[in-house]
Every structure is written in structure tokens, then in C-alpha cells.
Design a protein around this nucleic acid. Sequence first.
DNA 1: ACCTGAACACCGTTCAAGT
DNA 2: ACCTGAACACCGTTCAAGT
Lengths: 223, 223
Amino acid sequence: MGPVPAAASPAPRRGRGRPSSPVLTTDGITAAAVALLEERGQDGLTMAALARRLGVAPSALYNHVATKQDVLRAVQDAVNRGIDCSGFGRLPWEEALAAWARSYRDAYERHPALVPVMAVTPVRSAPHTVAMYERVSSGLLSAGWPAHLVTNVVVAVESFALGSALDTQAPADIFDPGDLAPSAPGFTTANAARPAGDTARAAFELGLAALLAGLRDLLRSPS
Amino acid sequence: MGPVPAAASPAPRRGRGRPSSPVLTTDGITAAAVALLEERGQDGLTMAALARRLGVAPSALYNHVATKQDVLRAVQDAVNRGIDCSGFGRLPWEEALAAWARSYRDAYERHPALVPVMAVTPVRSAPHTVAMYERVSSGLLSAGWPAHLVTNVVVAVESFALGSALDTQAPADIFDPGDLAPSAPGFTTANAARPAGDTARAAFELGLAALLAGLRDLLRSPS
DNA sequence: ACCTGAACACCGTTCAAGT
DNA sequence: ACCTGAACACCGTTCAAGT
């Protein structure tokens, strides 16, 4: 699968039957879906909207993908392609893992609708996703992590990154208890003391630092 | 809000106009929605199915809730009510936090459809959710955590628990690279070495141990 | 093989009409 | 105030008909 070309917006076809050369490709559909998701958010990605952007009838899409879920899987692989794994083999594993986690969270912050898809979609037939896991896994193995722990480390960091990506979608007042404040003094105190700014990022960085420190300990003193 | 009563399945009403006493209550709708979600999964919760279970026309629901999102919010508060916060004030904070995280993950493992809802829904008018955060926040404050860090600690643990809850929904073969195995030797090695059994739980426990160890360090040596 | 256009079974939600 | 039943604007998906 080559680089995903930018989606054009061709004029609607007027002919009735089979076109002389195919109008749609899987890569084109994927690119249009990514663009739609980025421009219009998760509810903006409908098969009808996708077809319109591609200048085609909705039913035409089903000559190239079996279901909408197929489209989401392809989009997810395109998103994973953009995640930075370049630190592995070049930097100490803690730094490579931290950079991967940050990039992972940022990618899914832009595509929160894909978080449940990512958690559940098999990697086979998702080449960029497999390539990502290969870099991470072999990086951890080379750094001295025992093979039987590597996937659990990857999944733990991934779960944290995906949960943190969802957290970026929270409204600023998510923890405002409203009328219930009098019944929650400790909660209210803690919220008032939380520094303003990018709170989601602050929570992510705190958790990431703790997680990495704990993993470092674990690797040093195996149980 | 009292305990949510088990949802009965009343015979459909036959009369045409306003009933002599209301047939629906918000609590009843919530309980039926929880049951539906548990029995039929996330796609099983439709306004039509909810109405049928309550012996009512779909449009009748809109006298009690404004949108389906309202129903999900109420369900989420009911789910949060079942999360165990009992350790705070009784056990060392690390143990209380660990028990909370485990219970949190388990609750959302049963309701993965609510994970994106939980990450984004304001707590006001969700009394059990506020009560949960109050126990956790005041527990951490009493244990000596600086107020400005408490909410970030809570959010970090929560993000990890929610991400891990999603991970429980992954199929067993999610990491099977299929045809792509030759291009991913390290990934394949790591997967082969991963112990069989409840792999999602193993990853969660590894990450939780690391996260808590890191938080312990952080509390001891503040930056 | 790969498109169009009509059709299907759903979805959440609105609203007039009934009591 | 709180229900019914009809209706609306959508949704993903199927399929015969065209070239």
C-alpha cells in the first residue's frame, strides 16, 4: 500500500453503466474517509457522505469494501502509519517508548472515533499497524525485555494512550459538580487546585512518567 | 436515587390517552436500559427496544428523557455506582487505588459501549459518579497527596482503566499477523512468548503495578 | 467488473390527537 | 401531564439493470 493520495472531489459521473476505467480504489476511499473524519468529526463519516465526496453513488462503495467497518479498519491503519516509532533502536527504550506513547495519544486525539476500533481490530491485513508493532516489539526485545513480558508492556502503554486520547475529548467543565458540590468537598478542593491549561496533557504526562518509572523498576528487578 | 429496581416486562397498554398514573419513570427507563445493554450488547440498546421492554411506544420515552444520550448518561451513573471505592480511608492509598482501578476496569468491561460516554460526560446531575470521585479525591488528599496533583492522578488511573476495559473486548487473535508474519519477526516472537490465559488481565495488572510504583516514587520525592 | 437508482429494514426524534 | 400512532429525515446495505 503506497502513500495515500489526497482525495480529489471529481464531478459526479453521468453515465449509466460500468465506467471505462474504475473510478474508485480502496486507497482513494480510505483517503476520503480520513479527510471526512478530520473535517466533519465522527458523525460526519457516513457512507452517503463518503460517496458524495468521491462523486459516486453510495452503493458503488460496496464494490470495494464489504462494510463500513472495513472502511474504519483501513482508516485506522492509515492513522497508525503516522505514529512515531523512530526512537526504537536509536534511543534508550524508555525514551523511545515515551515518544511512541505521546505520538500514539496525539494520533487518536485527532480520531477519537477510532479508539474503540483500534482496541478490537485484528492486525492482519493492516500492514502499517503490523510494522508499528514490529518496531516497538523488537525495540523492547533488543533493550533486554524478556520476551514473555513484551506484549503485555505494549498493551499496557497502548491502553493508557487510548484512554488518554479519549480524555482529550472531555469538555473543560467535566468535573464541575454543579448542585452536588456541597456533598463533595474533597473533589471540589482537588479540582480547584488543578492547574489550568491543557489538563488532559498534564494528566497524561503524569501517568506516563509514573508508568515508565514503574516499568524501569520492573525490568531492573524481575519478579 | 434509590436502588434501581429490576425491570418488569408489563403487557402493552391498550388505552389511547394519558394513563391514570404514569407508566414510566426515569429510574425504570435506566434499569431497563442497563438490562438491555447487558443482555443484548451495545447494538441492542435502541429506543425502540427500550420502549418494547417497557411496554410502551417509543415516543413515550421522550416525555422522560430528551435524547438517547440522556439514557446513556443515566446508565453510566448507575454503572459507576457499582464501582468499589471502599478502600479509601481504610487501606493504604496504593491498595485503595489499585482496588478502585480493578473495579473500574471490570465495570466497563461489562459495558464497553459506555467507555466513550464516560470519558466525555460532565459529572453534574450524576450523583453516584460525583460520590465516587469524592471518595477517591478525599482519600488521596488524606493520604498526603498535594491537592494540585490529585485530579491528574485520578484521571491518569481512570484513562488506564478505561483503555484496559476496551482491551478486554479484543479477540484472542488480534495480534496474529497472518501473511505479514515474515515481515515482523520480533512481534511474532513476543506474541509467541506471551503466556496464554487472560492476557488482557495480565497486561492490565502489569501496567497497574508499574503505574502505582511510579506514583509511589512521585509522592515520596516531589518535583 | 463496476457503476446507477430504486428499494429495504432500520434508526432517533417530532408532533398532533387523545384522555 | 403523559400516552399512541403516524410521520420525517436519516442510516447502512442489497440488488436488478445498465454498459
